[in-house]
Amino acid sequence: MTADTPAAGSRELILSRIRAAVANAPETEIPRGYRRTRSQEGLAELLADRLDDYRATVHVVPAAQVAATVGRVLKERGVGRLVVPDGVPEEWSRAAAGEGGSQIVRDDPPLSAEELNAVDGVLTGCAVAIAETGTIVLDAGPGQGRRALTLLPDYHLCLVRIDQVAGILPEAIGRLDPARPLTWIAGPSATSDIELNRVEGVHGPRNLEVIIIDG
């Protein structure tokens, strides 16, 4: 059998097996007594604390200091070539190139995987963040770029506005569009495969730095 041989027989077979199997099964009510929201207080601190727990580097700064912080952290790390997707505020990329001393790389025309692999870092915004679980969600929208951009470079600098921060996971789910490709990030790449202990740094970016813009 080849890939394009229709397997209509199996489709009907599986569906009929299911119908026979559940014919007498009871209906179930779904109780949703779990928390759906959390108070909006202290979200920046909670998010920072939880990300720090995963060994991400976190800064909480007011809007006026964002550009300066971007420049400073890039300079400190010595990030040479930095990919910046479309839609990232001009002010941030200017700071990256200026005080940060990074060479800005654009994904236009799209970089090949090899080219992207040769880049040192990436600067993005995000779609949503979740304070309680220390999670940032990218949806490949403006200021975030396609998924590979935040995957191949070894350093990811992500900026999160406080109005993008949800308290708990159910609040975030409601804000996201499943039709878009989503990447949820909770700390740098890690593994628990060696003796079930978490160690950071496998295939994804080994360094995650987050600037939370609060105020």
Partner: peptide, 18 residues
Amino acid sequence: STGERMNPYTSSWTGATE
């Protein structure tokens, strides 16, 4: 599973993507 609040990466996609 891993005893984490959230695993490092979760990906979701719908149909043919990018």
